[in-house]
C-alpha cells in the first residue's frame, strides 16, 4: 500500500517533468520490469534495450496515463508493448521457425521450487520467437487469444496452436531440468 502511494506520488513528479521523480520511479520499478523484458527478449542485452526504450516511452508519454488502473500496471503494459514492437521489427523477413509436435503429458504436476527463475527464463528463451510471445502473453500476462492475434498479426487459431505447442514443449524441457523429480498425481 505504501509502495503504491509512493509510485502515485512519483507519477505527479514525472508528469511535471521532474528528473528526480523520474529517477526514483526508475529505481523503484526497473528490476521488476527487467524481469518482464527478460521473459520476452532473446538475450539480456535485448532485454536491457527493451527496458531503456520502455522507460523512455513511460517518461515521454506519462501525460497519456488516464488513471485507469494502477500506474505500475500501466508501465507494465508499456513494457509488454515495447516487447511486441521489437518482435514485429525482428519478425519482418525473418524465417518462421516452428517446433515439432510434442506429446503433452498433462498427468504430471511440476514442482518448480527447485528451479531458479533464470533457469526457467533460459528455457523460455529457447522457444521460437512467435511461440515465446504467445506463451508469455497468454500464460503469464493474461491476454486473450483475440488480443494476441491482433497484436502479433496472426489468426486466433494460430495463437491457440502455438500456445499449445509451446506449453507442451516447455513442460518437456522443465521435466528434463528437474531430472524426473516431479510428482505424479
Amino acid at each position: 500500500m505504501e509502495r503504491t502511494v509512493t509510485i502515485d506520488k512519483l507519477y505527479e513528479g514525472c508528469r511535471a517533468g521532474s528528473r528526480q521523480a523520474q529517477e526514483e520511479l526508475y529505481r523503484a520499478l526497473a528490476p521488476k520490469m527487467m524481469g518482464v523484458c527478460m521473459r520476452y527478449a532473446k538475450s539480456t542485452f535485448e532485454a536491457e534495450d527493451m527496458l531503456q526504450a520502455g522507460f523512455i516511452k513511460v517518461f515521454t508519454h506519462v501525460g497519456s496515463y488516464r488513471g485507469e488502473g494502477s500506474f505500475e500496471g500501466w508501465i507494465h503494459r508499456i513494457m509488454v508493448n515495447t516487447a511486441i514492437e521489437a518482435y514485429r521489427r525482428n519478425v519482418r523477413g525473418g524465417p518462421h521457425i516452428a517446433i515439432d509436435e510434442v506429446y503433452d503429458d498433462v498427468q504430471h504436476t511440476f514442482s518448480m521450487d527447485r528451479l531458479e527463475c533464470e533457469d526457467l527464463i533460459q528455457v523460455i528463451r529457447e522457444l521460437p520467437d512467435g511461440y515465446r510471445m504467445v506463451f508469455n502473453m497468454y500464460a503469464l500476462e493474461g491476454y486473450s487469444h483475440k488480443e494476441i492475434a491482433e497484436a502479433l498479426n496472426i489468426s486466433e487459431g494460430a495463437s491457440k496452436s502455438q500456445l499449445s505447442r509451446a506449453r507442451a514443449w516447455l513442460k518437456e524441457k522443465i521435466k528434463q531440468l528437474e531430472g524426473g523429480a516431479y510428482e505424479t498425481r
Partner: peptide, 29 residues
C-alpha cells in the same frame, strides 16, 4: 495450474539492472 505456477514463480523475479542504464535513459530524455 502450470501457467499459474510459472506466473507465481516469476511474480517476485527482480533481476539485477545494469548500473549505467539510468544514465543512458536520462541522456536520451
Amino acid at each position: 495450474k502450470f501457467d499459474r505456477q510459472l506466473r507465481e514463480k516469476f511474480d517476485g523475479f527482480t533481476p539485477e539492472v545494469p548500473p549505467g542504464l539510468w544514465g543512458k535513459i536520462a541522456e536520451q530524455l
